[in-house]
């Protein structure tokens, strides 16, 4: 066993931290897009909108049924060969697209379950005062479903942050890609990867604290 090169690790910290914003940005943009898409798909499924419901089921089935890495390669390397207008797509865009669609498929099912779980009386009360379906969803049903779905959705966000590391297979120099490059230069693979592991871990732990705050805030409606 050789001793850890702590000086190297310490020196690497600021180098790698520079890539944290890109990782967070990719995950955040993909999360926001995925939330919007997942909510739409969940509503389509709950309301059983003709045609779109079938399409949504198919979409969800595909993106849950195939590996994220395969999907990313398909977007980045595959699709541009078929659709020439996609040739200009860069790795970051392809990664965000892939993450969005992949996680939207999972999140749609969680949101759908949460919507269905909202008590029937909430729908009837909304309709009885004369709301449109859209108003009912936006003002009454979705906020209550959000409270139920929030813990699961934060878990998906955690998963998403970690999954951004796959973008390095598309040639994106994000946190994982940068670590790989540094390690290849120094041959200190253990130091580099344990450090990047700690950085991911710290991000996720921070998020967990925020999650608890969010849940307290959303739980307000049921507190005394």
């Amino acid at each position: 066993m050789r001793p850890l090169d702590l000086d190297y690790m310490l020196g690497l910290v600021p180098v790698l931290l520079k890539y944290v914003p890109l990782t967070l940005a990719m995950a955040s943009v993909a999360m926001v897009l995925a939330l919007v898409l997942a909510s739409l798909m969940a509503i389509i499924r709950v309301m059983k909108v003709p045609v779109l419901d079938g399409f949504t089921r198919f979409f969800i089935s595909f993106f849950r049924g195939t590996p994220l890495l395969v999907q990313l390669f398909l977007f980045y390397y595959g699709l541009p060969q078929v659709f020439s207008f996609l040739t200009a797509i860069n790795g970051v865009t392809a990664a965000v697209m892939g993450l969005t669609l992949h996680f939207a498929a999972y999140m749609a099912e969680s949101i759908r379950a949460a919507i269905v779980g909202v008590d029937r009386s909430q729908w009837e009360a909304s309709l009885s005062v004369g709301m449109t379906t859209a108003q009912m969803m936006r003002r009454i049903i979705l906020p209550q479903a959000a409270r139920v779905a929030a813990p699961t959705l934060v878990n998906y966000f955690v998963d998403m942050i970690k999954s951004t590391s796959l973008a390095f297979t598309l040639g994106v120099t994000e946190l994982m890609g940068a670590t790989q490059k540094e390690a290849a230069g120094s041959f200190l693979y253990f130091e580099a990867f344990i450090l990047v592991a700690l950085i991911y871990w710290a991000i996720v732990e921070t998020l967990t604290v925020l999650q608890r705050r969010l849940e307290i805030r959303l739980g307000k409606a049921h507190a005394r």
């Binding site: 008590d119 009386s121 909430q122 009837e124 009360a125 909304s126 309709l127 009885s128 005062v129 004369g130 709301m131 108003q135 003002r139 009454i140 906020p143 209550q144 409270r147 409606a221 049921h222």
Partner: peptide, 30 residues
């Protein structure tokens, strides 16, 4: 529905709204 208000057996108040908001909701939204 706008011309017939409904009082439910099980109250069916909007769980994510305060008492005040429950009463004001229809006025604002509808």
């Amino acid at each position: 529905r706008r011309h017939t208000s409904f009082v439910f057996q099980n109250y069916a108040l909007f769980a994510n709204k305060t008492a005040l908001e429950n009463i004001a909701e229809g006025l604002i939204t509808v």
